[in-house]
């Protein structure tokens, strides 16, 4: 990797200050994407601001009808949290199936959604549960947060401080892992909450997306039969050596049905 200045602030305010005014400064949460990128010399930041020392950013709280997860909370902590398991077991399941044990013990929810890798798992849950993303400067709705391939609504110097997930009446995440990387080749998060039914798809397209036709059908009849004939178009879906766009489109339907079945169990 190239040389850079390394900082490990103890407070969010210090982190924001360190990032301010430096065009080439990069925040680092778990580093699960940034460090491999640095090692391959694909990024050349002037400064890396490690958020790992900021205690206020990590932790899980239940606030009324919501589970609030700090931006620097590790996947392993979400996966094993009794609060998450009891309020939204599908979210704990999702966290438990990210990467491998090393990744789960380093990677964070804030880092994952801020990076917005098209094959990441968390965007599925954030959109599927209609979560609210809180940053040091404000709040974003799930639908407005994810903008496109590796693109979010975050502005420069804006850091994810927490994500608030409403409790679900029913929810499940079904992931078809890429055989090699085990990222989501297609991941479907289905949830029925007070706000209605949502079907969010990650891995299949350049960015997480909802399948309105399935949501409408499930709102009337929350069963896998209700969506068995609803196909998503292959146009615009990802295509690579592991899956063609057509195969991904097919898998969206299969994974959505299986998610509904799992949610009904």
């Amino acid at each position: 990797m190239y040389d850079f200045h390394y900082h490990r602030p103890k407070t969010l305010a210090d982190a924001v200050n360190l990032l301010k005014g430096k065009d080439e400064a990069r925040p680092m949460s778990g580093g699960m994407t940034l460090i491999p990128t640095l090692k391959q010399r694909l990024a050349r930041p002037s400064d890396v601001v490690d958020l790992g020392g900021i205690k206020e950013l990590a932790g899980i709280k239940v606030e009324g009808n919501n589970v609030v997860i700090g931006g620097m909370t590790r996947h392993a902590d979400v996966a094993s949290s009794a609060d998450v398991k009891s309020a939204i077991p599908a979210l704990a399941y999702l966290a438990e199936h990210i990467g491998d044990p090393q990744v789960r013990n380093r990677g964070t929810i804030g880092g994952s959604i801020a990076n917005n890798d098209p094959a990441a798992d968390y965007p599925g849950a954030v959109v599927g549960l209609n979560a609210t993303v809180t940053t040091n400067t404000g709040k974003h709705t799930a639908d407005s947060f994810f903008k496109g391939l590796f693109e979010t609504a975050l502005s420069d110097g804006e850091l994810v401080t927490s994500v608030s997930f409403p409790k679900a009446e029913k929810a499940a995440y079904m992931k078809f892992p890429n055989p090699a990387s085990r990222y989501a080749m297609v991941g479907v998060f289905v949830a029925k909450t007070a706000g209605g039914v949502r079907v969010a798809v990650t891995g299949a397209g350049p960015c997480v997306f909802r399948v309105k036709a399935m949501e409408d059908a499930l709102a009337k009849n929350f069963s896998s039969d209700a969506i068995k004939d609803i196909k998503v178009p292959a146009d615009g879906l990802n295509s690579d050596i592991h899956a063609s766009a057509e195969y991904r489109a097919h898998l969206v339907n299969v994974m959505a049905r299986r998610a509904v079945d799992a949610a009904n169990k």
Partner: peptide, 20 residues
């Protein structure tokens, strides 16, 4: 499966992200 791009000869399965 070691996969090369048939036109460019780039090794597509050049890391564990793509070589299973």
């Amino acid at each position: 499966n070691a996969v090369y791009d048939k036109e460019t000869g780039q090794l597509i399965s050049g890391s564990y992200m793509d070589y299973t």
